[in-house]
């Protein structure tokens, strides 16, 4: 057990945890933030994506000890002051979801991608999103939603 301090959705957070534990399970467990999903546990699907210091990261592969001092945003922290983030708005607007299980990861991955490159081309969006899987196959609308936010369409 160690004390790990980090910023979570804009709030300073301090936890007594085993540093080997993966962020995904801490989020879904004691932090009760179940919007971040488990899909594969091996970094292969992106359902667990969160944004860490501006980068999209797979929380199923991120140990708590590497979270120390970091700034973490999860899907629950994206809307601010009761107002949806543009990505959230455009996902609804474009119908970019069906079962919704991949949606948190899709939005957070896109959020991280856009922080690094606010005006990506379609090719860059495809490359940036390619390792996020959606079995309902909402791909077309997910791309359109992201393009709408990026202002590239």
């Amino acid at each position: 057990m160690e004390t790990i301090r980090f910023t979570l959705n804009g709030r300073p957070t301090s936890l007594e945890v085993d540093g080997d534990r993966m962020l995904l399970w801490v989020l879904r467990g004691e932090l009760e933030l179940t919007g971040t999903k488990f899909g594969c546990g091996a970094g292969l699907c992106g359902a667990c994506t969160v944004v860490v210091d501006g980068e999209p990261v797979r929380s199923c592969r991120l140990a708590m000890r590497d979270v120390r001092g970091k700034d973490i945003t999860t899907i629950e922290g994206l809307a601010r002051d009761g107002k949806l983030h543009p990505l959230q708005e455009q996902f609804i607007e474009h119908g970019a979801l069906q079962c919704g299980f991949c949606t948190s990861g899709m939005i957070m991955n896109a959020h991280g991608m856009l922080q690094k490159n606010p005006r990506p081309t379609r090719e860059q969006i495809v490359a940036g999103m390619d390792d996020n899987l959606c079995r309902c196959a909402a791909h077309k609308r997910i791309l359109e939603a992201i393009e709408a936010v990026a202002g590239t369409k």
């Binding site: 009760e32 919007g35 899907i75 996902f91 119908g95 919704g100």
Partner: peptide, 21 residues
């Protein structure tokens, strides 16, 4: 018509079986 479950699903508040505590 916009999906009625859209808001819950883009905010991470939609509950699936694994989210029950």
């Amino acid at each position: 018509a916009r999906r009625r479950d859209g808001f819950a699903k883009v905010t991470g508040t939609a509950k699936y079986a694994g989210d029950m505590r």
